[in-house]
Simulated assay, not measured.
Amino acid sequence: MSRSSSVGAGVAESQPTLALSCCLRKAGAAAPPMGDGRPVVRFTKLTAMYALFSAVLLVLLIAALVDIITRQEGQVKHLPKVLWVILVIFLPVIGSVLWFAIGREYPARADRPRVNVPRRPAYQGFAEPPVRRVRTTEEELADLDREIDFHTEQARIRRIEAELAERRRPTDEP
């Protein structure tokens, strides 16, 4: 009986330790110390994912704040800049995604360049590219009418100047 009691006592002593270590791990407590007194730090795939996710969120937050602050008031849509900053600070994920989705004004898309053509804007510096407006047929016809009227008027002026020069020329008749 002493043998069974000693075996039973050993199992009873090890079970609370096992249960205690499981509870500590579930509760988020520190890992049990190693032999030299330092805690065991386990770096798992899950902790790597948490670290990567946190880093991505931090970069997204910083990028959104920098983009909001450096934008001019005319390039910010739907809310004033101050409210966008507050939204991004208090709701980082939602605020940043909303800022990049609907809050900022993106430049107009250009046509896709042909193959082997360098992607270089025609403008230099930080200025916005000039916006080319497509003219309607009526506008082009009105421009042509003005051009025809201009050339007709120029021809009339040349004809009148020629008549005036003809009249000013001295006549040979005495």
Rank of each mutant, 00 (worst) to 15 (best):
G103Q: 09
I148M: 12
A30I: 07
V7W: 02
P174G: 05
A9N: 02
R167Q: 14
G10S: 01
R156W: 03
Q124L: 14
G35Q: 05
V59A: 10
F53N: 08
E13Y: 03
S6R: 13
G10M: 01
T152H: 05
P129K: 13
A29T: 02
F100K: 10
E128T: 10
S96W: 09
R119F: 11
R112K: 07
Y50H: 10
D67W: 07
T44I: 08
P121V: 08
V117D: 13
I160S: 15
E128P: 07
V117W: 14
A108Q: 12
V76G: 11
R104C: 06
D149K: 04
M34T: 07
R169L: 11
I89P: 01
K81E: 00
E147M: 09
P174A: 14
G28E: 07
D36T: 04
R38S: 14
T171W: 07
R112C: 09
A55W: 04
P121L: 12
V97N: 00
T47S: 13
P39N: 12
R109W: 11
S6M: 13
M49P: 03
L20D: 04
E73I: 08
R3Y: 05
V41T: 10
R159P: 00
Y106C: 07
L144W: 09
A64P: 00
A127D: 14
R119H: 09
D143K: 12
A48T: 06
R25S: 05
H78E: 14
M49T: 08
I157E: 13
F53Q: 10
L18Q: 00
Q124R: 15
H151L: 13
D172S: 05
G95F: 05
A31C: 10
T137G: 02
V131T: 15
A31W: 09
P32G: 04
V82C: 00
E13L: 09
Q72P: 01
T171F: 07
G103W: 09
V56L: 11
A101E: 05
I86M: 15
V11Y: 02
K26P: 00
A162H: 15
F43T: 04
R42Q: 09
A27L: 13
P107M: 02
R146Y: 08
E161T: 10
E138P: 01
K81L: 04
H78Y: 14
A51V: 06
L98C: 14
V131G: 02
P129S: 13
P39D: 08
Y106S: 10
F150A: 02
P170I: 04
I102N: 03
R133V: 09
S14T: 06
K81H: 00
L52M: 08
Y123W: 11
K77A: 14
I68C: 03
E163D: 12
D172H: 04
L52A: 12
V131C: 03
V134E: 03
P33N: 06
E147I: 06
A51C: 05
G125S: 15
V66N: 01
L52V: 05
R42P: 01
S54A: 12
A9S: 08
A64K: 00
P130H: 13
R42S: 05
L60Q: 03
G28W: 06
I94K: 12
E105C: 04
